[in-house]
Design a protein around this nucleic acid. Structure first.
Lengths: 232, 232
DNA sequence: CGCTATGTTGATCCATATCAATAAGTGTGG
DNA sequence: CCACACTTATTGATATGGATCAACATAGCG
């Protein structure tokens, strides 16, 4: 793998503090690959041969059952995904596909496990990452079980707004079709939900979202750090 | 804490392989407490001062938002809970209450973190446990998003049956009220769902469940190792 | 520029929640 | 040990959130 990618990968919390020679030995067995959009990188159920790192582009994690499909998360650069399967040496629970032209680093799972066994600092980082991932999914579950789809959308928009440094107008980061799936609803229902939020000052035009009265939307959405905070 | 509890706690995968002196130093700061039923042990949002271990009885993990409440999981002996919050030193995401008279071991979170920092074997076990927890919640999310409530109930029953070594008749492990909440439905809807499963040979009488034709139920439920397996 | 995928809107259907009433347990104190 | 109170479970009637089906509009894209 070209050394040019090392610095940005090194900035990931997962790899930041570990010993240089261990990092290099991880990189030695890895390789970068460029994928066009809509390529399936992973099929759920497959053995977890590689830890994946998105260096550019974006990746959709999704799951299927009995002919149905749902979007579980979107991975943006620079982040890893399917760490848990790699560590447990267990089958992937989610499938992954590129959403756009993407560059992915593949680190052999056995190398990750090997370094994990000998580098306490790396092990420490893995624990932090896994705990983080765990808490994220718990929040997702709470979101699904405790809120209606309208409430989920409202809170999603507030989160996106925070992401956009609180701007009154911002662009949706993902296409509506997948946003609907991510929020656990149909595209038709999402369309109607957007309209339903007009009562709270939300205007949507294509991918442009305008929130005229954040306070008002918050009164409805009732965001909670125990559901909507992705950092803690 | 009385040494009499050490052996059973030691049998937990989390503590099994760690150094004896580290284990003892964890136990030194810990204490056991007996709680009556329906006592709130943890309130979500509180700082995570202790890692909890259920030694006897059982504990319900639940969450609330905007006046609504949902059961997230039931913890049976001997298991730990809220490990992720302990490790991250972050607020609890779930509340916990005893379901019956229960004996709980409380291990100060800072001790857990301290030993975790110096004992690579313990760190290893924590990673395994967290990865496991993460995968469990991912499965829960898939279950919620990809299945109807009737399908979730059918698969839940098949899982319970497996737990009962495949017996055609077994008892429900938790009360229906909380089962409904756990499965993401109302008690009324659960009652009707049980009836709906009669078409697939399921008979329920009080807490007794009888599955006359497992094959038939499986044809409907379509269990998947990527959703219903709690071991991998 | 036209094709194809995505998004919107309306009509309808279905799953699930809610409300209300009753029945069946369960536990407590006399 | 029973009677009472209280919680849990069931059943029916109804409301509603959300899905589905269908038609059309729109926007990317080759």
């Amino acid at each position: 793998m070209p050394r040019s990618h090392f610095p940005e990968i090194r900035t990931l919390e997962l790899f930041q503090a570990m010993q240089e020679d261990h990092f290099l030995s991880l990189m030695r067995g890895s390789y970068v690959q460029n994928f066009p959009p809509q390529i399936e990188l992973i099929n759920e159920g497959d053995p977890s041969d590689f830890l994946h790192i998105v260096v550019s582009g974006s990746v959709d994690l999704f799951s299927t059952w009995n002919g149905r499909e749902t979007s579980m998360a979107t991975v943006h650069p620079v982040s890893t995904f399917i760490l848990a399967a790699t560590i447990k040496d267990a089958p992937y629970l989610m499938s992954a596909r590129t959403l756009e032209k993407s560059r992915i680093v593949l680190v052999p799972s056995q190398d990750v496990r090997a370094v994990f066994d000998i580098d306490p600092v790396f092990a420490h980082a893995i624990v932090a990452e896994l705990a983080q991932c765990y808490r994220s999914v718990v929040k997702t579950t709470k979101n699904l079980k405790l809120r209606t789809s309208l409430e989920r959308l409202a809170n999603y928009l507030l989160r996106q707004q925070t992401h956009a440094e609180g701007a009154a107008e911002f662009d949706l980061a993902i296409e509506k079709r997948r946003l609907a799936s991510f929020l656990g609803m149909t595209p038709e229902n999402l369309s109607r939900a957007f309209k339903g939020l007009r009562a709270y000052g939300v205007e949507v035009e294509g991918i442009k979202v305008h929130i005229s009265d954040q306070q008002d939307l918050e009164r409805f959405a009732k965001p909670s750090s125990l559901i909507d905070d992705y950092s803690t």
